[in-house]
Structures are given as structure tokens and as C-alpha cells.
């Protein structure tokens, strides 16, 4: 009897060892990447880096215009995607039949899977050429809005469908109109989910590069309006590392700024999801 038992124990030991090594190597890889970012990026980082324009093709100076451009692109993206996404999510939870709802959801899932370079092609053709907006912050922001829309809709929808059906029934029994029910009861209850969707959208939009190269363009000056071309932080990283010899230090510093922003927004979203959208799952 003792023989097979020790045999299985030995087997479990070896499996566990292999898996610990596998998981450990994943952690080590991540630590390697983040460590490099930190070590190579922190040297160029200073207050001036965040507040000054670049000089010498970006090798020195700062990234202030890129931060402004990124914020503008982000603002246009969210100003479009959030109201549209909220309305679509409200449709899915309040109005849609099962069939229609399924179609819209499938279609949004398909949209979420579209490669970002294809969004870039689409944005370039539609916004820059057909609508005549040219390479501009407006084109870039609208392109990103198409991209983050599925994320905003699905998160908001999850929050809305968590609002108890009894609230809606109670409101209907009181003969409240749909508008009033939504405005005074459902929306406040679902507001946190909307915020989480917003933060997830910010994360996705901040990280995006390929969709922006041919929509918002390359220009590294301070944008004067949303019709100007503006270079996002992500494109700045690309340009510095590919087109500017000896641009790597600044590229790393910019990447560090971007990744810190991203991790912060991601942690905020994760916290919000556990807190408000799937409270039961956070127990695990």
C-alpha cells in the first residue's frame, strides 16, 4: 500500500515543481520588463520632462506637448464613446428583446476583436479623408472611440443589469415614466459601473498606437485646436525608438510615464469591478 502512495506523492511533487517554475518564469519575465522600464526610464525623468517641449528630435527636453495631445485625444474619445456606450447599454438592459440583445452583443464582441491597425485604416479613410478632418486630434479621438466602445458598453451593461429588477418594477407600479426611473433610480445605482467602463476605456485608449499613427498623426508641437495633428505618448515612444538614433533613453522615460498611468488606471478599474460590478467574485 505504501508503494503507490509515495509514487503519487512523488508525481505531485514533480508536477508542482514544474508548474512553480513555469509560473515563476512568467513573474520573472514581467519583473524583467518592468525593471528595465524603471531602470532605463527613471534617469531622464524629472519635473521638467513632464512640463517642457521636446528638443533635438526628442533626445532632450520633455514630453509636454504629447501629454496635452494624449489628453485631448482621450477627451474626444471619451466624450463620444461614453454617452454612446451608456445609451447602447441602456438599450440592452431596458429595451432590447433577447434576440436583438444577442445580436447587438455579438456584434460588439466582434468589434472588440478587430485588430487596432484595421481601426487605423478605417479611421484614416473615414475621418481623415471622407469627412475631411485630416490628420487631427479629432480623427484620432473618434477612431479610438470606435475602438473602446465595446468595452464601455459591456461594462456599463454589467452594472445596469446588477440594479435590482424590483426597483424598476416598483417604479413602474408608481407610474413613474421610464425617463424618471432611469434618471433617478437606475443610473445612480449604475454610476460606479459606468465609471469603471470609463477607466477601462482610458486604459485601452492610452495604450493604443497603431490606430493613431494614420489618424492623429506625428506632429510633436503643442496642438492649438482639435483640428491640429497631435502626437500621443505612445506614438512618441514608437518614433523615438525607431526613427531617432540615440532616442532610447527618452523613449524609456516616456514609456515609464505611460505604464505608470496605465497600471494606475487598471488597478483603479480592477478595484472598482470587485467593489461594484462583481462583488461576489472578490471573495475568492
Amino acid at each position: 500500500m505504501a508503494e503507490p502512495r509515495s509514487h503519487t506523492q512523488a508525481r505531485d511533487f514533480w508536477t508542482a515543481t514544474v508548474l512553480w517554475l513555469g509560473a515563476g518564469s512568467v513573474l520573472a519575465l514581467l519583473a524583467w520588463i518592468l525593471g528595465d522600464l524603471l531602470l532605463q526610464g527613471v534617469g531622464r525623468l524629472s519635473w521638467g520632462f513632464l512640463t517642457e517641449p521636446p528638443s533635438d528630435a526628442g533626445r532632450s527636453g520633455g514630453v509636454a506637448p504629447m501629454i496635452i495631445s494624449t489628453l485631448w485625444i482621450l477627451a474626444i474619445c471619451l466624450a463620444t464613446a461614453v454617452p454612446l456606450g451608456l445609451a447602447a447599454a441602456l438599450f440592452l438592459t431596458e429595451l432590447a428583446s433577447r434576440r436583438t440583445g444577442r445580436w447587438v452583443r455579438h456584434s460588439l464582441d466582434a468589434l472588440a476583436a478587430v485588430p487596432s491597425i484595421v481601426f487605423g485604416l478605417f479611421g484614416n479613410a473615414l475621418f481623415c479623408h471622407v469627412l475631411g478632418l485630416g490628420y487631427s486630434i479629432l480623427s484620432g479621438g473618434l477612431t479610438l472611440a470606435c475602438m473602446v466602445l465595446p468595452l464601455v458598453v459591456r461594462t456599463t451593461e454589467a452594472g445596469l443589469s446588477n440594479v435590482a429588477q424590483e426597483i424598476r418594477q416598483g417604479a413602474a407600479a408608481l407610474a413613474l415614466s421610464r425617463v424618471t426611473t432611469l434618471r433617478t433610480l437606475v443610473l445612480p445605482a449604475a454610476a460606479p459601473a459606468l465609471l469603471v467602463g470609463l477607466v477601462l476605456g482610458i486604459g485601452r485608449a492610452l495604450a493604443e498606437t497603431a490606430a493613431l499613427i494614420f489618424t492623429s498623426g506625428y506632429v510633436d508641437r503643442f496642438p492649438e485646436s482639435i483640428h491640429d495633428s497631435g502626437r500621443s505618448l505612445s506614438i512618441h515612444i514608437y518614433d523615438l525608438s525607431m526613427n531617432v538614433p540615440a532616442g532610447n533613453d527618452t523613449a524609456y522615460a516616456t514609456a515609464l510615464v505611460l505604464v505608470v498611468l496605465l497600471i494606475a488606471s487598471q488597478q483603479l478599474a480592477t478595484w472598482g469591478i470587485h467593489r461594484w460590478i462583481q462583488p461576489e467574485r472578490s471573495v475568492r
Partner: peptide
């Protein structure tokens, strides 16, 4: 969550 352009740089 790390952007693809940062993976590229690395």
C-alpha cells in the same frame, strides 16, 4: 495592460 509599443521598445 502593458501597451504593445512598450513591448516593442523592450
Amino acid at each position: 495592460g502593458i501597451p504593445s509599443v512598450v513591448y516593442g521598445l523592450w
